[in-house]
Design a protein around this nucleic acid. Structure first.
Lengths: 105, 105
DNA sequence: GATTGATGCAACTGTATGGTTGCAGCAATC
DNA sequence: GATTGCTGCAACCATACAGTTGCATCAATC
């Protein structure tokens, strides 16, 4: 799980509307229709966003009667943060090494 | 510093080509022209990517003679990771609280 | 000063995508 | 069984954007 490639996750997180959806879901699980009452976009637009969020594992859905209720998966955010942090460290290390070599000349 | 809003940073990180540019820069600082020799895209395309990377503070540039040399700022990645991690924690906490409330019913 | 190799700017193309409207389908309730 | 309200699908529009080509510019070198 959470084995999704990193880049699509970032792409999903690179949209303001998607963040407001995530924020709204942070208040509690909700369906696309419910969300459309709180956000200034159509239910269908929200549904599309939810599907991309779900594809990258940032969101989860459960059928409750005739409605599809979505919920944020906070763990995926944490996982992404961890991976990004490792990459940042890696870069710092490499750049420090390069700097040392450069200064040794 | 590194006070850039989060979303544009994610948008910048949500592109494969940009990651390959970052990866190439990880091998050492380089100019757009130099990078175009190693990547399957035009110098101009790379220049555009570098400008968006620079706008969100992921990359830095120094003029060296007649060339503009770019360098990765690993710290910005780490900072982004930290902020994302905090958000993830926040969500986990809130969701846990909601779950407790729901189970108490 | 001419040449060379780098950047900068502008216009253009194709495609992805955020957003919309409209309608069909389907489950729950009355 | 009719109504109500939510989901799902499809077509469509506008804009953003990754990428290209072409040309101007400008600094370093010969």
């Amino acid at each position: 799980m959470t084995s999704s490639t990193l880049v699509p996750v970032f792409a999903a997180l690179g949209d303001e509307t998607r963040w407001s959806i995530l924020a709204a879901l942070g208040e509690g699980d909700a369906s696309a229709s419910a969300l459309s009452g709180r956000l200034p976009v159509t239910r269908q637009a929200i549904a599309k966003h939810l599907s991309v969020l779900q594809e990258v594992g940032l969101v989860d859905s459960v059928r409750v009667g005739r409605e599809l209720r979505y919920r944020v998966i906070g763990a995926q955010l944490s996982e992404t943060a961890r991976r990004l942090d490792r990459i940042g460290d890696e870069w710092e290390r490499r750049l420090a090494a390069i700097k040392r070599v450069a200064e040794a000349l």
